[in-house]
Design a protein around this nucleic acid. Structure first.
Lengths: 201, 201
DNA sequence: TTGATATATATCAATTTGATATAAGGGCTC
DNA sequence: GAGCCCTTATATCAAATTGATATATATCAA
């Protein structure tokens, strides 16, 4: 599946600008199983406009550049339906965190402890975001709550595993605290010595 | 993280050819959280050889082309350690299956039923593969069993969700086996319209 | 015998990423 | 009231990566 199909699919839920589509695949329920960058979204929309799969409405805005709001056309829906009628590709999960864990022997203990904690916090955040999505925003769409439920289940199980098997990787620190109320906080073996200005490669 | 780092990481476990590295990211424990294609692996190995990060040993084989077995050098290990000392990028999960489910209204019912069943079987296979990996093959490496455990937990929860929430997407077919202790409740009356079994591949 | 599958390396067009440029507005602080 | 960062918004582009294909041989099955 390519970015074209992805954009068409999103536009069936509501009309949107390229910028908004990007936000949706970053933050919305969509974000948990699809991905795309500006560099592919904008050209895809331009091309699909020329082909009549979408149409545009320029929304003038004080100061900011005009927002180009795209909407899917009947022809676009037709193309989408055709593009979807294939066996979906296998799920793909990428995790640099897991890669680093596999190679922990090459890393300072403090680094491993730090990324482990960050990963736990990241997963908690993601789960929280899904719950918010389902709560406030209209996840009236039945398949949306299904997809959200799946994400919550998977991420929840992963999080629980990380919480339960900390000792396997980090030796022992914070042994069994999560049982009380779920708020583990104090790492007696401090990580504070390290700066946290590491950049992604 | 790029393919270079990925190859170096894998080569710390054992020396391997480009072909074998590809197999490893396809089938081994690695396969559950990293990915790479021939088109990126081969050039990466060639370049890293020129840079002294790996070295090669040509293994002659009857008939087949010589196998070029790559091994990581001390300099390669040094570079790997440096490349790993960054905040890992966010996990990324891609699922065309979920995308199709979100857009099920554009798809024939039978197609949805078919991909749903395939997805369940696919997840069962993946979990089985992980268990095999841990069983026979040497997952002596402690972090390998950790990573395998994480995968099993996440995939297992996802699989259970699909099994338990079938009705939410497919209407009703194959209704109740998991209902004994399950949390889902509001399934009193079902539409018994179609009970065709679809076990197509 | 034909076809399919597996080992093995390699290339390359097409797609996609990730970073950057441009431009205006708002908010923060000092 | 200047400096700075963040957000909205579109767009481009080098570099990385994919996915498909080519080449060659061996084996197994129909």
């Amino acid at each position: 599946m390519n970015v074209r199909t992805l954009c068409l699919g999103i536009l069936t839920f509501k009309e949107a600008s390229g910028y908004e589509i990007k936000k949706m695949v970053e933050e919305d329920v969509f974000g948990h199983f699809i991905d795309a960058s500006y560099g592919s979204i904008y050209p895809a929309l331009t091309k699909m406009m020329a082909e009549g799969l979408v149409n545009v409405r320029a929304e003038e805005q004080a100061g900011k550049p005009d927002k180009k709001v795209y909407a899917i056309t009947p022809f676009g829906r037709q193309e989408l339906a055709a593009a979807l009628l294939v066996d979906p590709a296998k799920d793909k999960f990428k995790s640099e965190f897991m890669f680093q864990i596999m190679l922990q022997e090459f890393l300072p203990k403090e680094h491993v402890a730090q990324i482990y904690q960050s990963q736990i916090e990241y997963l908690r955040d993601e789960i929280e975001k899904i719950r918010c999505c389902v709560g406030d925003h209209q996840v009236n769409h039945p398949s949306m709550s299904f997809v959200a439920g799946f994400g919550e289940a998977s991420l929840g199980a992963g999080l629980k595993f990380l919480e339960d098997n900390r000792a396997q990787i980090l030796g022992d620190e914070t042994p069994s605290l999560t049982l009380v109320d779920g708020t583990l906080d104090h790492n007696k073996d401090q990580i504070e010595g390290q700066s946290k200005d590491q950049k992604n490669a």
